[in-house]
Design a binder for these strands. Structure first.
Lengths: 222, 222, 222, 222
DNA sequence: TATGAATGAGACTTCATTCAT
DNA sequence: TATGAATGAAGTCTCATTCAT
């Protein structure tokens, strides 16, 4: 689950014997279990707060066995982050200047919210890493992420030029969308506290999507 | 700095001899130094990741001396959170239904962004706590925060009824504003990576405020 | 290489199926590879410092496979030590009272230095074990080694009686020769540091032999 | 005991807060206890084989408290080695070309054997480190040790020129003396095994000194 | 014969906290 | 008020060994 196996933009190898032999069934299964468990634990306690013990427990595995698959806590964390980054970024890549901004940006918001709903923990790990100053992810952000964003900023500028949107800084727009959509993953707890009730998950996200799109689309479209 | 000393809504006592005697000059000074140091360290490493050693170092104090002022790591963390909560919440309390939403909400956004700019670390600690499921802050959120928000939601509903805003769920609006404004504190690093340059702080926040207000106001006002 | 397969003086069995079946070609080869690798690794890190992993790697073999040949780390270490002891001792056994001390002791020194040159690592393992208090080798030293030395001490005493040598304690003489010759294996590194240059191996040992023999022979012969 | 506190030839600092404040009584006492315990344990098991637990036990101290004084196992090992090096080297420095080689070299041998008798464990740690390839001490050996030896080699050459000694390589002579004298520390156990009896310590060393000096002096003096 | 997978025991080290002064 | 000294608990990681194939 959530294991995109995307080709890393840099040569980072997060696993022990990186691909020398095809992973056996059991290896694949275990690696997945570990990544899922790690995502959950890291999302709750951050990198330093999480313990290998907790992760191993959740993955139903002994500590040394976990370390057999990922040689250190840091390697595991890296693997989790890389795992997330790609899925997190994919929808942005699909912005297509041929289509209308209404359709494209609407679809983008939909996908981001869906991601927050499906993988709230992955999303939180990502947010935590960023908020901590991206000590580990910075190299990737500095190259890969920036390139992707730059390309899509150009698309938005095209829409502005065509008069289909108000004249806005595309970078700030992208970041606003990130802020708002990610919020729904990062702050699920806060939302409960504020609203004072635990909502039906699907209904809540539907309503959120509606509100967010209403405001943002109204705010940017001509 | 940032020490609001607000009257705690619940009976939480975070300090050792809480008020029995008037604090001496030096005590006040030390308490402040500790809180500032703690805010910074907690913001970078999270609760479990931070160490008392780091905080004591930054506060130019020995570990035992720090513990003389705040009896435990948890007590210190609590103090930091409470410190933040009040300042964080203050601007919302000022929403005044007598005025126009344009003015009031505009002012609110301004203040939130200013807070993010001035206290990015405090903001991050807050965000971290929330994202971790608010293990410590939940009781406060569940009572105090909810009350404040409920009151202000009523103000917004008034504006809607008066036809000064589009018909939107006030809770979601408040959360969107939080999301967007807080983002600028939590993700300062990401912003650098995405934009590919370290911006002049003041100019950057000015531009951000302009963009955010442009979109949000346009999105909600009639 | 260096596998003397001498008949163990005591019943120590270091291998798993000790001789029940004739070893196949590949088995013999593997055993040798393991012993050589183990000698090198043990020589560098001592018994506890060495890891089976390192040895297995050097022997190009998996850990479990290594343990198939030698049932435990201790068994392997024992095998290495026994391997060395015999070769180490052989030249002493050849001291022949019929010949002159000049010729016999000269030959002995030659052989000891040659051994140090050829098997510096084996020599170091031996030295390490001794220096550690011979926890494993003590039983052998206490019986086998002592017997050999006692016999040869008698030979030396004969030479003294015949007036061919000065009157010296034979045990101390033997130990001096051990000390000096073994030194050249144990302290190869120190020698480099002291002399400040890496010498041509063969030339260095030739020169050493000359110096050592010059002093010792002059010191003991009449 | 054995804490020479010599001025390190290089800037190596092995302790935590290196000299900022005068060490208190208790600190000095504890540091000494630790160094003594460490010397003993390292001498028996080598660097990797020794455990901090063992050392802390022997020093009657908790593990964390030991680490309070020496920040890591490696730092402790370094301290032990430096402690030894200087004492080990001191007697050589005293070789005085004004005096006769008979007297000076005789005195040198006396002191080396005395050192072996008094600090056999320290001597063994030193030997172990060297035999392991001096992974930690090499920088010091490569500079400091070499300089000292070079100077003293010149003294010996003077004696040769004056015709008071046979024509011998001074480096090899120095190393022979090291070999023989150190042997009595490194191989105390072996000596027992070979001689078949545990000797009265003082008597044994006296006899050893006599034999060694007899052979070496006869071997080199004219 | 060979090796991937797994683990209990234990290693080094960190850390919140307490003690004594 | 301040701090040097001390420690139990816990964390990351290593390693000899076993299991299953």
């Amino acid at each position: 689950m959530l294991n995109s196996n995307f080709p890393l933009p840099d040569g980072l190898d997060t696993e022990k014997k990186g691909g020398k032999k095809k992973d056996s069934r059991i290896q694949v299964r275990n690696r997945e279990k570990i990544l899922d468990a790690a995502t959950e634990i890291f999302s709750m306690y951050g990198y330093r707060g999480a313990t290998i013990d907790q992760i191993a427990n959740k993955a139903e595995m002994s500590k040394p066995n976990l370390l057999y698959y990922f040689s250190s806590k840091e390697a595991l964390y890296l693997a989790v982050l890389h795992n997330i980054l790609e899925i997190w970024l994919q929808p942005l890549k699909e912005l297509n200047e041929q289509e209308s901004p209404e359709h494209e940006i609407g679809a983008y918001i939909d996908q981001k919210i869906e991601f927050s709903r499906l993988y709230p923990m992955a999303s939180r790990v990502f947010a935590n890493e960023i908020a901590a100053g991206a000590p580990i992810l910075k190299p990737v952000l500095d190259t890969y992420l920036r390139d992707v964003v730059r390309k899509k900023a150009r698309v938005i500028k095209k829409w502005v030029k065509r008069g289909e949107m108000i004249d806005i800084d595309p970078y700030h727009l992208i970041m606003m969308i990130w802020a708002v959509t990610q919020h729904y993953a990062d702050f699920a707890v806060q939302i409960d506290s504020v609203l004072g009730k635990t909502l039906d998950n699907r209904r809540f996200y539907n309503q959120s999507r509606k509100n967010i799109k209403q405001i943002l689309m109204r705010g940017i479209l001509k």
